[in-house]
Design a protein around this nucleic acid. Structure first.
Length: 445
RNA sequence: GUGGCUGUAGCUCAGUUGGUUAGAGCAUCGGUUUGUGGUACCGAGGGUCGCGGGUUCGAGUCCCGUCAGUCACCCCA
């Protein structure tokens, strides 16, 4: 016997999880499309050079790579941004600019696993390329907000910052050349605490005054207006820094104009993001009830997405929803789904010799747009109902010998145990109409 | 990749200083009830104690390795 098992960091998805995942995918698709983002797809496998070109050592280490049967060095995509850069460079002339796309697909990273951190997981990206307009930046924030709200998350926050603000402050402190290390340390503030970050910065040779200034910046908190005022002071007359502050002001104003609740949008100067290709706005979002899970949706603006693959400058802005991490978080918070069936109505199989009638009824209901599961065996009714309730069906249709004889049917609400009698006089069309008109009632439960 | 913690039925866990055929609750299946599921009663199935090796007369219990999960570093969705 071969032991059935899955690889570290790779998971099976049972119906309850798969249905929850597809629900979120459907919502993401709807929200992205509502802003005009168009779907694209790219191969899971790319030439290794396409994936490693821009990669830091870290991403190179995490790449699943091998030599294919034709002797080509290939790698599995570890995000959707790099393949998109290649895609954009290859197809700009057919796409036209600006171009907005969404891409929901599986990616692979050979790193160590943790809660909400897997080796195979799905990302739901959306990006706008070919424009440097602040409108696109604002739209990214709005899409993220609409997305998380539509999924039904009650408490979440979108934390926004701008790399230019960070650059401006560093410039003033004379640390511009050490940006990467300093930002990496600041990024840990929430997790490690101020003291640890201060120590780490000092260890990098940052002067005490500069450390104090950096911490003052990173710890700015409160209403966006106050944080922005604080940042404006810290940035001084640095042109880059002022541009960053102005950009954030636009975001705050735009979000307010559209009606984004103020408590969901936070200006957080400690958000830096490790990826060094971000150049403007950066964004991370968290479940307020489970911040330790990490960011569930992150993104930002980059000056030149595809510089490695084309001479044409392609600025852009976009973000990525980590659907597997999000679902792990929702499940941990008890907000997961328990429904195990995609069908709405359960049709009990009762009278063995009435099979043709059952089939006819099921077919008619399906033609009317209802998802119907017909139980395949004429087992005891109690057993059938028990299974149907466990699976999460909203309603069960019961038609036995008595009902056939009197031209009636029982429509049972499996959540409330209440059942209503339908008179259909043997006319399937009447039955279908009656069931459909009760459907709203079932949905409401 | 490095280090810490964990690993007993589908799930949550018991299992005394290593000592006879490894237990409970929930879940599952069957019955009481060959037409009505959340209660009750009766019964059943299900465990190579993650896996492999070692120490021992004897290991779920100790040691080593390995796999998996988890936490930290790192990085990130």
């Amino acid at each position: 016997m071969i032991q059935p098992r899955t690889l570290k960091g790779f998971r099976d998805h049972l119906p309850a999880q798969a249905l929850a995942r597809e629900r979120v995918l459907d919502i993401a698709r709807r929200v992205y499309r509502s802003y005009g983002f168009a779907p694209i797809d790219t191969p899971a496998l790319e030439y290794l050079e396409v994936l490693t070109g821009k990669g830091s050592d870290e991403t190179d280490k995490q790449l699943y790579r091998f030599t294919d049967h034709g002797g080509r060095e290939v790698g599995m995509r570890f995000d959707l941004t790099v393949p998109f850069a290649r895609f954009a460079a290859q197809h700009v002339n057919e796409l036209g600019l600006p171009f907005k796309r969404y891409h929901m697909a599986t990616v692979w990273r050979g790193e160590n696993t943790q809660r909400g951190r897997y080796r195979e997981f799905m990302q739901c990206d959306f990006d706008t390329i070919g424009t440097t307009s602040g409108v696109a930046d604002l739209e990214m924030v709005l899409v993220v907000h609409d997305l998380l709200a539509a999924i039904g998350i009650e408490r979440f926050s979108i934390r926004v910052n701008d790399r230019r603000v960070l650059a401006g402050v560093l410039e003033r402190l004379g640390l511009a050349d050490r940006a990467t290390g300093v930002l990496r340390s600041l990024d840990k503030l929430a997790k490690a605490g101020a003291e640890a970050v201060a120590a780490e910065l000092a260890g990098q040779g940052v002067a005490a005054e500069a450390v104090a200034a950096l911490l003052e910046m990173a710890r700015l908190a409160g209403p966006p207006a106050e944080v922005l005022a604080g940042l404006a002071t810290l940035v001084g007359d640095s042109a880059t820094g002022r541009a960053g502050v102005a950009g954030l002001e636009e975001i705050v104003a735009g979000a307010a104009a559209v009606g984004v609740p103020a408590n969901r949008l936070v200006i957080d100067p400690s958000i830096a993001r490790g990826l060094d290709y971000y150049t403007g706005i950066v964004l991370e979002s968290f479940l307020d009830d489970l911040p330790s899970l990490g960011s569930i949706c992150s993104g930002g603006r980059y000056d030149n997405l595809a510089g490695l693959y084309t001479k044409q400058p392609l600025p852009g802005v976009g973000a990525s929803l980590g659907i597997d991490r999000l679902l792990a978080g929702l499940e941990e918070l008890g907000q997961g789904t328990t429904v195990e069936t995609p069908a709405e109505l359960f049709l009990a199989y009762f009278e063995a010799d009435r099979l043709p009638d059952y089939l006819r009824i099921a077919a008619a209901l399906r033609r009317a747009g209802l998802a119907v599961e017909f139980f395949p065996e004429p087992k005891k009714l109690g057993q059938q109902l028990k299974l149907a309730a466990k699976r999460g069906f909203r309603g069960a249709l019961i038609i036995g010998g008595e009902e056939f004889a009197t031209g009636t049917a029982q429509l049972k609400n499996l959540a409330t145990h209440a059942s209503t009698t339908i008179d259909w006089h043997g006319d399937v069309g009447v039955l279908v109409d009656a069931v459909c008109s009760c459907r709203a009632g079932l949905d409401a439960v």
